[in-house]
Design a binder for these strands. Structure first.
Lengths: 155, 155
DNA sequence: TATTGTTATACTCTATAACTATA
DNA sequence: TATAGTTATAGAGTATAACAATA
């Protein structure tokens, strides 16, 4: 094949000079691998996130979970439905405020959560191979700054 | 308001311990700000990316652009349509291979591209405020590693 | 037979309006 | 009246199959 005129890899120096561009590509790389990692557990990234947050915040309401996940309430319904239908979480009326549901993990949900978390930790080790611990700390600190710089960062 | 029982911010320590979680949040923060930055130019992130790559790779074909952008060919058609309809790029038949189109920026396209790039650079400075130059270099190097660690990284 | 660009289509994700039941 | 959860729906973004023109 003749790639003398048209090189295989096109010039993307302009974009590569943007931190945001590299950040998105790194994030996509991790998300892709994470999706594969969660497949054996029949979890998507978003259902995994919800499961972990419910486990770590017993009795959480859907509204507060939606706010924490930055997901619109209507969209959270199907996520919670999915976890409940698989008996990974329970949805119980709160006696003091019968509008809200208290979300809690079932024993099966806790087991699956723990197993998935182990797999995710292995996935992180895989994706961060070659990045030293000290560098990872610098990376995390820099990311925290960037997150804090978002429009209306603190409010 | 009584937040004695239910704190405002729920515990997300488990997820915060994952680099991928922070990476995605930082990426989302930048993407959100970038979308706002590009609005005055009536560009979306994906049309901006295409415009820059066409400018930097004169005569590019749609297939190669799609491959570079990691976009399916059918989805690129509408992106190229949009840029062509706005007279930012031209789409001309290649005489040596009449199947392919050669993509090139128009003068208007180059002007808009340069102006948008200036705005994007200002956006980057804004989003990276508080992250020192040395730290940025470490960040970029770490991101390059992560991107390289993606499944079938080099092939 | 393979490739470029295209159309049509479907599936996921996300966003908004409007409803119900409770407060 | 305001809030929690829900339904229906609409809009992005993305993925696949199949086609016409060309190689």
């Amino acid at each position: 094949m003749t790639d003398d005129i048209q090189p295989h890899h096109i010039a993307d120096d302009t974009l590569a000079g943007l931190v945001g561009y590299r950040l998105r590509r790194a994030s996509n790389a991790i998300q892709g691998d994470l999706s594969e990692t969660l497949k054996p557990f029949e979890l998507r990234m978003i259902t995994f996130t919800a499961l972990v947050l419910i486990r770590d915040n017993a009795g959480l309401s859907q509204s507060r979970l939606a706010a924490a996940m930055d997901v619109e309430r209507p969209n959270l319904v199907v996520i919670v439905d999915e976890l409940e239908n698989r008996d990974l979480i329970t949805r119980e009326r709160v006696p003091t405020d019968r509008r809200t549901y208290a979300l809690n993990t079932t024993p099966a949900g806790e087991t699956l959560c723990a197993e998935a978390l182990e797999a995710v930790k292995a996935h992180e080790v895989r994706m961060l191979a070659g990045v030293e611990d000290g560098t990872q700390a610098v990376l995390v600190a820099a990311l925290a700054r960037i997150i804090g710089n978002r429009r209306g960062g603190d409010e």
